[in-house]
Amino acid sequence: MRAVIPYKKENAKSRLSPVLSQTEREEFVELMLKDVVDSLICAGITAIDVLTTSSEGVPDDLDVKLVVTEPGLNESINAYLQTVDEPTMIIMADLPLVKSSHIKKIISFPEDVVIAPGKGGGTNILFLSQPKEFTVRYHGCSFLSHRDITNELGKSIRVFDSLLASTDIDEPHDIVELLIYGDGLSKEYAEKRFCTKSGKGRVKISANSKLSGFI
C-alpha cells in the first residue's frame, strides 16, 4: 500500500493572497504537506510519493520519494498510476485536518474505490484498490466524475463523509477551520498570524499582528 501527494509550492494558494504574501503561502503549503505526510505515516502508510513538477521546494527532512513530472494534474497522476501495482491513496497536500484515524478508516473499507469529497464537489482523497484500471479526472466537479468512472468500470464505491477530510485550505475563511480543528504544524503557523473572532454570522479570522480588520 502506498500514497501519492500532488504538490506545488511555487506561488501556491493564490486565493490566500488577501491574507498571506507569496513567501508566507509557500511556507504554509510546505507545513501542510508535512502534516499530511505525518498523518499517513501515523496510519501505517510509509511508502509515500510526492508528485511535483520540480524537486525544489519539497522539504529535505521528509521521508518521501519525489516523482518529478510534467505539468498537468490529471496527466501526471494518470501516468503515475500506471507505474504502481498495489492499492494507492491519492491525497491532496492541502488537507492538514486529515488525521491518521481518517486514513485508517478509508483503507479499511472493502470497496474497490473510496472517495473523500471536498467542498464544492471536489475530490480530496481517492483510494484505489486497483490503480492501473482507474483514470482520474480532477477539476470541476471531480467527485461526480470519479463516481461515474467507478460505475463505468463496474467497481464498488464508498463515499467517506467527513468534515475534516472535506476541508482543504484554499480560501481565507478555510483558515477558521484550521484554527478550530487543527493540531499540526500548519495550525501553529496560522496561530502566529491569525485568531478567530465571532460576529453575528460565522466565525471569521482577524490578524494577530501586521494585518488589521476582519478577513
Score class of each variant (00 low, 15 high):
L81W: 12
L179A: 04
N74E: 09
V67N: 02
G121N: 06
T123M: 03
S156K: 05
P96I: 12
L81C: 06
L185R: 09
V159Q: 09
K132A: 12
Y138V: 05
L164M: 14
S145Q: 15
T52P: 02
L66P: 00
A165R: 01
E133K: 15
K132F: 05
K104M: 15
I157T: 11
D183N: 13
V67Y: 03
E152C: 11
P87Q: 08
L163Y: 15
T135A: 11
D61W: 00
M89H: 04
H173M: 06
N78K: 11
K105W: 05
V67R: 07
S142C: 05
F109M: 13
T69Y: 09
Y80D: 07
S145N: 14
I149M: 15
G140D: 10
P110G: 01
L128F: 08
F160G: 10
L128P: 02
P131W: 01
G121R: 10
R158Q: 10
A190I: 05
V159E: 12
D60K: 13
G184I: 03
G140A: 07
V113M: 06
S186F: 01
K104W: 03
G184V: 03
S101P: 06
L73C: 00
H173C: 04
F143R: 09
I103L: 08
M89V: 02
H139C: 02
G118R: 08
S76A: 15
D148I: 14
N124E: 00
A93S: 15
H102C: 06
F109T: 06
L51S: 10
P59L: 12
S142L: 04
A93W: 08
S186P: 09
V114M: 03
P172S: 06
L62D: 09
R137N: 11
V176M: 03
I125V: 14
V159Y: 05
K104P: 04
D183I: 04
G72I: 07
T53Y: 09
E111Q: 15
G182V: 01
H146W: 00
P87Y: 12
S162T: 11
V176W: 00
V67I: 15
H146R: 05
L126P: 06
L164I: 08
F109I: 09
S76I: 13
D60R: 11
R147I: 13
P131H: 08
P131E: 00
D148C: 07
I103N: 01
L144C: 11
N78F: 14
N151K: 15
L66A: 09
N151T: 11
K105A: 12
I77G: 02
Y181F: 14
H139M: 04
S100R: 03
A116C: 15
F127L: 07
L153A: 05
M92R: 08
T83V: 06
D85P: 00
L126G: 00
D63C: 14
G154T: 07
V114R: 01
T83D: 09
